[in-house]
């Protein structure tokens, strides 16, 4: 089952991310997709805030990975510039996926199949209005579906 949320401003997207971050557990892996300018980094910033990260959360496009410390370590990946699975392995993504922190991966759809058991997949799509976004969550894990039920109840 998909969980669908609608936001009407970048701040609302960030706030939804924060409410999710509040609920996340060690080892969670989030795959986050959406077109350029959809609000992926804003959502990720919210997740970071929910995890207690207080430092600035900038776009990791250039550096590929920005690691933050909060209640849990937060590994923020952006695969926009990654061209091949070989490069993906070379940057050491597996070490983060196996870690007890929370890993969020922007542009994960470029490497479908690589992330075989994510905690959840999140996609951000443009809505009817200019700043409207439809944010869809999907998870195959019971634990995450319970978490998403809570997220719905709080929204």
């Amino acid at each position: 089952m998909d969980y669908i949320f609608t936001t009407n401003a970048e701040q609302e997207t960030e706030s939804l991310g924060k409410r999710l971050g509040d609920l996340l557990f060690p080892g969670a892996v989030l795959l986050l997709d959406g077109d350029l300018g959809a609000g992926k980094t804003a959502f990720a910033r919210g997740v970071a805030r929910g995890l207690g990260v207080t430092s600035p959360v900038q776009s990791p496009t250039f550096t590929i990975l920005l690691a933050h410390s909060g209640r849990l370590p937060f590994y923020h990946f952006d695969l926009y510039r990654i061209e091949s699975e070989e490069e993906l392995l070379d940057i050491g993504i597996e070490e983060c996926l196996d870690d007890e922190g929370v890993t969020l991966v922007e542009w994960a759809e470029k490497f479908q199949g690589f992330f075989d058991t994510p905690s959840m997949s999140i996609s951000i799509a443009r809505g009817q209005e200019e700043n409207m976004r439809e944010i869809t969550f999907f998870s195959g894990e019971e634990r995450c579906r319970e978490l998403l039920d809570k997220l719905c109840a709080r929204s």
């Binding site: 350029l36 300018g37 980094t41 804003a42 910033r45 600035p56 900038q58 776009s59 496009t61 250039f62």
Partner: peptide, 18 residues
Amino acid sequence: GTTRDDAAGEAFDKVARV
């Protein structure tokens, strides 16, 4: 001060891409 989100060069690259 620094950027709160995207770097200036990143904005150039992404706009050039679109």
